[in-house]
């Protein structure tokens, strides 16, 4: 018997809300939006955690500039606190080394990480989901029952095709979908909004394609001042639905 599932419930017991940022497709800005959302929520003095579940390609640390290196081990693994955000990422353990994992190993690593990370009391845990509808998504649906999914899309037809599958899967599994957020908007288009309407979930607005983002990566103050984070900040009330309650 695997005892870790029982451990996960204990570890997440004091987490009020879990927002899983997904979309299915790689390169659509899930990590940016996860990192920026954690930053914006932390600015509001909400106790915020950020879990990078992209185990083979973590990059939240690149956006927020937190140091990698083994986290402290005190009655479990302690998230690294960076600008008030409690961060956990595979990058802490491996730095820049590749982590070649097959499906079952992805699942095992994810379960282990959830079972031993001591988040403590959190108002919100933002989970940066990896691309695809494989092991990580299935485990999120299995183990993070209270998760609310924030679906990221762009106006590209290729992306919309994948996001449609993601929304269908979430719908078929009875997942709670906060809504669909358009990222990297180049020009006015209705594709993402129509997709949200088609699935009966809220359209959460659009974030602009931000040419200055690359230079701001790794510097929280500069990242916080970018147009894309400013736009996300304006949408946070809409994203949170009933609002994020402060402890």
């Amino acid at each position: 018997m695997d005892p870790r599932r029982a451990g996960i419930e204990r570890r997440l017991h004091s987490v009020k809300r879990i927002v899983a940022v997904t979309g299915g497709k790689g390169g659509i800005g899930k990590s940016l939006i996860s990192s920026a959302l954690a930053l914006v929520l932390s600015e509001r003095e909400l106790s915020t955690g950020l879990l990078d579940l992209d185990l083979t390609g973590p990059c939240d640390h690149v956006f927020l500039g937190f140091e990698t290196g083994l986290p402290s081990e005190v009655f479990g693994i302690e998230p690294v606190i960076h600008h008030g955000i409690r961060c956990m990422s595979m990058a802490h353990f491996v730095g820049e080394r590749p982590v070649p994992l097959r499906g079952e190993d992805v699942s095992n690593a994810l379960v282990e990480l959830l079972a031993v990370t001591r988040w403590g009391e959190l108002d919100v845990l933002v989970v940066d989901m990896p691309p695809g509808l494989g092991d990580a998504m299935l485990d999120a649906l299995r183990l993070l029952r209270q998760a609310e999914f924030l679906v990221v899309a762009t106006g590209s037809r290729v992306v919309l095709e994948t996001v449609r599958r993601t929304l269908r899967m979430l719908s078929e599994n009875g997942a709670n979908v906060l809504g669909v957020l358009e990222n990297m908007q180049r020009e006015e288009s209705v594709g993402v909004e129509e997709l949200a309407r088609c699935f009966g979930v809220p359209f959460l607005g659009s974030l602009p394609l931000d040419g200055g983002l690359e230079e701001a990566m790794g510097d929280v103050a500069r990242l916080a001042a970018t147009p894309v984070v400013a736009a996300l900040r304006r949408r946070t009330g809409v994203i949170s639905g009933s609002g994020f309650a402060r402890s």
Binding site: P3, R5, A6, G7, R10, E73, F75, G76, A115, V116
Partner: peptide, 18 residues
């Protein structure tokens, strides 16, 4: 000392089984 987190999980799982 993350053994404690795993030990807690073992006891929780055992009590769930009980």
């Amino acid at each position: 000392m993350h053994e404690l987190a795993l030990a807690e999980a073992v006891l929780d799982a055992a009590l769930e089984t009980a």
